[in-house]
């Protein structure tokens, strides 16, 4: 029974957070955030270590891989639409990836973050496994990058809808790309809440952004830090 506690707790809190969010629709009450806070409070109160919790809820983390594979399904369903908008994708993603790496490194310098932290921040806008890989190449701390990727995801999930409203963005392609480029998998999940097309654009952007950053970061980061 104890073995399954972490898993059950996570699912119950997530489900509760989702129900709450459906009722109030307030951005800061995003199910991801409420569930995260509830879990951290429970772990701190019961003195359960993070590694114990993580190993007991590993089944959920393992699901991320098949979920990424499943992104092929919307990609297949909407492939001709994506082919039609190839210009939007490539142009906006190339600029987005450049802004992501450049602004991270420069802002880290302004904020006086130490060297290894700054290097761990640089690849934060792409999906976790690739971000950790880039972090390793740059000389950052991969585990720390994983945390920054999550903070990016959370902030993007909150900022995204605001940016769409303020900039009056209308096209599904632009909505999808800004989520996929800005905050990877979390953004993709959020974009699927807006619509199938937005979600598909986001998942395609997430994958493309990861490859662009993979090629770009090792060249750009040393230049920026010189």
């Amino acid at each position: 029974m104890l073995m399954w506690m972490g898993l059950v707790m996570t699912v119950v809190f997530y489900w509760g957070g989702k129900t709450l969010y459906k009722k109030v629709r307030f951005v800061l009450l995003n199910p991801m955030i409420t569930c995260l806070i509830a879990l951290i409070v429970v772990l701190l109160c019961t003195h359960m270590s993070y590694s114990t919790y993580f190993s007991r809820s590993k089944l959920l983390t393992d699901m991320l891989n098949p979920a990424t594979v499943a992104l092929a399904i919307p990609l297949y369903r909407h492939f001709d639409v994506l082919k039609r908008h190839i210009a939007e994708f490539l142009l906006s993603l190339a600029c987005g990836a450049t802004v992501a790496v450049t602004s991270s490194v420069l802002l880290a310098r302004v904020m006086r973050l130490s060297g290894s932290i700054a290097l761990s921040v640089a690849p934060r806008s792409v999906t976790t496994p690739i971000a950790m890989d880039i972090s390793q190449t740059l000389g950052g701390i991969p585990a720390l990058t994983a945390v920054f990727v999550i903070i990016t995801g959370l902030s993007g999930v909150i900022l995204g809808p605001l940016i769409i409203r303020v900039c009056r963005i209308q096209s599904s392609v632009a909505k999808g790309t800004l989520f996929g480029m800005g905050c990877h998998g979390l953004g993709t999940a959020r974009a699927f809440e807006i619509g199938q097309m937005e979600g598909t654009c986001a998942s395609l952007s997430m994958v493309t952004a990861a490859f662009i950053t993979l090629a770009l970061a090792p060249v750009l980061v040393p230049l920026l830090r010189a």
Binding site: T10, Y14, I40, Y50, F54, I150, A189
Partner: peptide, 19 residues
């Protein structure tokens, strides 16, 4: 899987605790 993807990110997000 895609609909519930946020759930699968939660265990790694709790990792913020270690830092």
């Amino acid at each position: 899987l895609i609909r519930e993807m946020l759930l699968f990110f939660i265990p790694s997000s709790v990792g913020i605790l270690s830092y």
